[in-house]
Design a protein around this nucleic acid. Sequence first.
DNA 1: TTGATGTATGCCTATATAGGCATATAATGT
DNA 2: ACATTATATGCCTATATAGGCATACATCAA
Lengths: 118, 118
Amino acid sequence: MARVATTVDVFNAVAEPRRREILDVLGGGERPVNDLVPLLGLAQPQVSKHLRVLREVGAVDVRDVGRQRLYRVNGHALKPIHDWVSTYERSWSERFEQLDEVLEELKQEEQGDGSDDD
Amino acid sequence: MARVATTVDVFNAVAEPRRREILDVLGGGERPVNDLVPLLGLAQPQVSKHLRVLREVGAVDVRDVGRQRLYRVNGHALKPIHDWVSTYERSWSERFEQLDEVLEELKQEEQGDGSDDD
DNA sequence: TTGATGTATGCCTATATAGGCATATAATGT
DNA sequence: ACATTATATGCCTATATAGGCATACATCAA
């Protein structure tokens, strides 16, 4: 078996480095497909395919202008990733480390208090 | 071709839902492998394999105690994901939306000013 | 040593999928 | 209508990998 389809799980869609690159480029503003081709060093069909995956998970939106299709990032689709990973932010954020220190102090005080209702 | 190895790219390692589940469980505290088996509904060998992948990208640490191996989350490994996805936070965060409003206002004022150094 | 328990590894199969390449589709200009 | 440009789709191959299952390895108990 392989894994949950890239077109269904945004975590998986974005696990492909090329697709992250595409989002990063599009972060700078709306662009047609052919703009991405030289920037990524990929053939046009592959770029279109990556864009399709990103579109299916909602990470990009499209707009037709003449014969061009202008793609743009839709960051909302990435929120689940942010939400999930943020629960681990405690590990590296100074802000949380300081919070942990305070909580630790409170805990110690409680223990000195003699109550052991854990 | 497939994609960057799960054992090399933390984005890819975590693109597998089972592995996110494992991290979520371990977030509650250190646990031996066999604790995860019933919780995930996976066979023990598959759990060990997922843990191996997580260990290779540094997302978990191990500690031997007797014949058990206690695994725990190492959130630091997830920071690159947080950093990357945070650049898109503008899309959904009220905080950034308000900032955008202010910037928009400043821009309008500048235009009314007659200067067009854009 | 022997047996039991906890975990890791190896082999196998099915499957998803990235990229190569040809071609289809669509819009525009002449 | 025809050519040109922009993009999407289809077919192909190679490859990574998730899970099934047997088994190796390691640690502890008797």
